Simulated assay, not measured.
Amino acid sequence: MTDTAPEPVVPAEVPAIDTPPDRLSVNPRSEFYEPALLERGIGIRFEGVEKTTVEEYCVSEGWIRVAAGKSLDRKGQPLTIKLKGKVEPWFKS
């Protein structure tokens, strides 16, 4: 019989997710807002063209929301339009 204490179990580091989520929004009021993922940097390719002004996207439903010019709603948020097509998100870093 030995008086040695058992080795402490050290959890393995969780690897970074390599695929972006199915749905993400840049609006803090949205339930799909994830600041940690946004800090990492996400690029969106819509119908084969890279878009830089995407407010929200959904891969499974195939749409993005982009600002409709400089128009604002009564709460000061940009007016958006939904465009349907093939959405391909990726992490920039």
Rank of each mutant, 00 (worst) to 15 (best):
M1Q: 08
T2E: 13
A5N: 08
P6C: 01
P8C: 03
P8D: 07
P8H: 06
V10I: 15
P11Q: 04
A12V: 10
V14T: 07
P15G: 05
P15W: 00
P15C: 07
A16I: 12
A16Q: 12
I17V: 14
I17M: 09
P20M: 10
P21C: 08
P21I: 04
D22C: 04
L24G: 02
S25C: 13
V26N: 11
N27Q: 05
N27F: 03
N27T: 07
P28G: 02
P28C: 02
P28A: 03
S30Q: 09
E31L: 12
E31N: 04
F32R: 15
L37V: 15
L37K: 06
E39Q: 14
E39C: 00
R40W: 05
G41M: 09
I42F: 01
I42Q: 03
G43T: 05
I44P: 02
F46L: 03
E47H: 03
G48F: 01
E50P: 00
K51L: 14
T52L: 13
T53C: 06
E55M: 14
E55I: 13
V59C: 08
S60P: 09
E61C: 06
W63R: 02
W63L: 04
I64R: 06
I64H: 11
R65E: 14
V66N: 05
A67S: 14
A67I: 05
G69F: 12
G69K: 12
S71C: 04
K75W: 05
K75G: 00
G76M: 04
Q77K: 15
P78Y: 08
L79W: 01
T80V: 12
I81K: 15
K82G: 01
G85W: 12
G85E: 08
V87C: 06
V87R: 05
E88S: 10
W90R: 09
W90Q: 01
S93K: 08
